[in-house]
Simulated scan of single mutants.
Amino acid sequence: MENLLEIRDLHVHFTTYAGVVQAVRGVNLSLARGEAVALVGESGCGKSITAQSIMRLLPSPQGKIVKGTINFAGQNLVKKSEREMEKIRGNEIGMIFQDPMTSLNPTMTTGNQIMEVLRRHSRMTRQEMTARAVEMLRLAGIHQPERRLRQYPYEFSGGMRQRVMIAMALACGPRLLIADEPTTALDVTIQAQIMELMQDLRQKLGTAVILITHDLAVVAGFARRVMVMYAGKIVESGTARELFRSPLHPYTRGLLGSVPRINDRARQPLTPIAGRPPDLLNPPPGCAFWPRCSEAMQVCARQEPAMVEAASGHSAACWLLHPQAQNRRRVG
């Protein structure tokens, strides 16, 4: 299967008064045409910064891609000028931003906001843009789209605003859609509806999707592959089925252990991950997770583990996968 997106050794730094924050530290990611991949992890692990790097929307001059390539459809986006990126954003790559309550412009009707994307990237007439906006709202599951086109965001519920955001992101038929926490601030029922809508649109339009979330329950029925991020790095990658059934990295096991299960008749207590994420102003040597890991060994604190494939398509960066791991002394 041909890859639509390939990220290789991506490093993103932010210059602050306190020093340089190493927000993304060597991310490798690939995405095939029409594929759905989920990027999961705690807040602050680098998920959204990776997405903003793909879109080249890092705050300037603080944020900067200092190393790596982002190849999209054979083009290295890192080398593109701002004018060239303006032609790609919205047209080739669409993005659903966090928090539908604040992402829409309150002074513009929903119709004008959708048509603004079309106006910038197509040569449609006003009538054609209106018809396309109506079509996208209908595809997004909004009833009476002709009337809704003339309404303002304050007249919509949270779930409907998110549907408008999806309609805007897909208006130009992009080949890649980045959904950054698309179910934030929505109740569970609306979350399920939004994820079902995105899955349906992905299958109809053939759009590849990167889903960014910290909610593992959202991931299970949507993505074919899951990548787990921690401290600016991908620490585990595999199919959703394999990763949920037999996680390899202690951090992944910690995330899964923190999620309540409906079928847990024994009512086992949730097991939170002890400690807190490392300070990326000064990342720890070795594996960034070792200070919080109950299975940490001496080598974990000294040397960074490489990504090891334990099964076909399932890999993790952890010293526990080393054949001599059982013979090594634990930390502490």
Rank of each mutant, 00 (worst) to 15 (best):
E155R: 05
K233T: 15
A220Q: 15
V219D: 10
Q268R: 15
Y230F: 11
A208R: 07
R276W: 09
R224M: 04
P278F: 14
A217V: 11
D264V: 08
A274S: 13
T271L: 14
L248K: 07
I194A: 05
I166Y: 10
P278Y: 12
M198K: 00
P278G: 06
P284H: 08
P283W: 13
V235G: 07
L201Y: 12
G232R: 11
A208I: 06
K204G: 01
L256G: 04
H214K: 07
C172N: 09
T213V: 07
N263M: 15
K204T: 04
I178K: 01
E181N: 01
R175P: 00
D200M: 05
A167L: 10
Y230V: 03
A220V: 14
V235P: 05
M168C: 05
P283Y: 15
R224Q: 14
T271H: 12
G206T: 07
Y251R: 03
M198W: 01
E155F: 00
Y230T: 02
A171F: 07
R202C: 04
T271V: 14
L176F: 09
P278L: 13
T252N: 05
R267H: 13
G206E: 08
Q203I: 08
I210D: 06
L256T: 05
L177A: 04
A223T: 10
Q203H: 10
R241M: 10
Q268K: 15
S237R: 14
G275H: 04
G159P: 03
D264M: 10
G206H: 11
V188E: 03
R175G: 12
L177R: 01
A231P: 05
I190K: 13
S237P: 00
I273D: 00
D187N: 12
A208K: 02
